[in-house]
């Protein structure tokens, strides 16, 4: 004998079939009755929703929709007010709060952007500018004071001294050569 059979025969427990019938009746009640018949149980279907409740729910929906529309309109107005009229990219402002990695979109920004700021952004931002400056200074320093290692490296690479370097120009005039030959 199963637990289910045992329960059905016990006087202190309602049979499964009776309970299932009760559930089925409750589901049917919900789907068919109107609110006047059964105040405790709401019926199914749109027509069964109490009119007052339906109106309150839709009023909430309308209120939130209006609030969102107002907020969006205010945001658009604020964005229009902050778009720069002149500069590197007039009318263009960064999309979002920098989250697009410097992408530019028309009229969707969060404040004015100056000319140099736009140039810096076009190059790649602060880190790119710092790298560019460091490389420039290093090139200048190497040009003015070439280290010995660099010079000996050049000689070993080309197999000659600096005097044989094809890039060195003989500054002796051709007229001086003719004078010396006579």
């Amino acid at each position: 004998m199963t637990d289910r059979d045992d329960r059905q025969n016990r006087p202190d427990s309602l049979a499964d079939a009776a309970l299932d019938a009760l559930f089925a009746e409750a589901r049917a009640e919900r789907n068919t009755r109107d609110t006047g018949d059964l105040p405790d149980l709401p019926p199914g279907g749109a027509e069964g929703l109490p009119p007052g409740l339906s109106a309150r729910i839709l009023a909430d929906a309308d209120t939130l929709m209006d609030q969102r529309a107002s907020a969006a309109a205010a945001e658009r107005a604020a964005a229009r007010a902050h778009v720069p009229a002149r500069g590197f990219a007039p009318g263009l402002v960064p999309a979002g709060a920098g989250g697009m990695g410097g992408a530019m979109m028309p009229g969707a920004g969060f404040g004015p952007v100056g000319f140099w700021a736009q140039v810096a952004r076009a190059i790649g931002g602060g880190p790119a500018l710092a790298g560019l400056g460091a490389i420039t200074l290093m090139g200048l320093w190497l040009g003015l004071m070439p280290p010995t290692a660099l010079q000996s490296g050049l000689e070993s690479a080309f197999g000659t001294g600096l005097s044989a370097n094809p890039y060195l120009v003989d500054s002796t005039s051709a007229f001086e050569f003719l004078d010396s030959e006579g």
Binding site: P42, L49, L53, S54, I57, L58
Partner: peptide
């Protein structure tokens, strides 16, 4: 969410009775 009030009414008709039950 895009501002369609009819959608709110349809959702209310469809879902609110189940929530109420």
């Amino acid at each position: 969410a895009n501002g369609d009030g009819t959608a709110a009414r349809l959702l209310t008709d469809r879902l609110a009775p189940r929530v109420l039950a």
